[in-house]
Simulated assay, not measured.
Amino acid sequence: MTTTMHQGPKHIIGIVGWSGSGKTTLLSDLIPVLTERGYTVSTMKHTHHDFDMDRPGKDSYRHREAGAKEVLLTSRKRWALLHELRDEPEYEIDALIAQMAAVDILLIEGFKSHKYPKIEVNRPSRGKDLLCLTDDSVVAVATDDRFDGVGVVQIDLNDVEAVADYIVSYLRLEA
């Protein structure tokens, strides 16, 4: 089977917010809603923590530890490419996006400071500052209550269909 890679996603929108606000839950709920509507969806998650998808003792782990720059794991159900940065700086988001397959929508969790369009998840009960007040790339706030004086669209955080509707409308996707 041949697939074309590295064309990148057609549309990008981020889900941002403070830790514990519900970003991951919203993203996990949005994916099946958007895919049921016929859109192909990929995700990208930024973490500030060191992470490792591999496990000590596995062949791929041993390959990386031996100094391999990349290790590609493949099976009949999925494949994953592990790329070791070694002493290189962290890749820029645009370089990472360029590595992704062509899909209709790329949902990004994190990368708050990048200037792609974003939906902020914010619950007033948590007492966290609104990012949209200082970040003009935030195009909407998904919230479980209303904020006064916010200059962007507010969407009910608990209505995933409404959030999906907003994304489809904002990105001007065809039905």
Rank of each mutant, 00 (worst) to 15 (best):
Y116G: 06
I93T: 09
I105R: 01
T74F: 14
S28G: 10
T25Y: 06
I108R: 04
H48P: 05
K112F: 10
P89F: 05
D104F: 03
H49K: 14
I119E: 01
M44F: 15
R78W: 12
K118H: 08
A102T: 04
A68Y: 05
I93Y: 06
T40Y: 00
T47Q: 06
L26A: 06
T25V: 12
H83S: 12
K69L: 12
Y91I: 07
A68E: 11
Y61M: 03
I119P: 03
S75H: 00
W18K: 11
I105N: 04
A95G: 09
P56W: 10
V41M: 04
E36N: 15
K69R: 14
H46K: 11
A95N: 12
I108H: 03
E84D: 15
G22F: 06
H63W: 12
I108S: 06
H114Q: 13
G57D: 02
W79D: 01
K112R: 14
H48A: 11
K58Q: 10
I31N: 07
V103L: 08
T43P: 07
V41C: 11
V103T: 15
R78K: 15
S28I: 07
I105K: 04
L96V: 12
A80D: 00
A102F: 01
H83G: 04
F111K: 01
I108E: 04
K118Y: 05
R62K: 15
R37K: 15
V41F: 06
H46W: 03
G38Y: 09
R76H: 13
D87T: 13
T35H: 06
Y39D: 03
L82N: 01
L81S: 11
P56L: 07
R78M: 12
A66L: 05
A102W: 03
D54Y: 01
K58R: 13
I93H: 07
A95M: 10
W79Y: 13
R55A: 14
I15P: 00
T74I: 13
P56T: 08
G8E: 05
V41T: 12
D104M: 08
D54Q: 09
S75E: 02
V16D: 02
T25E: 08
K112M: 10
H49S: 10
Y91A: 13
D104H: 06
K10Y: 05
V103M: 10
R37N: 05
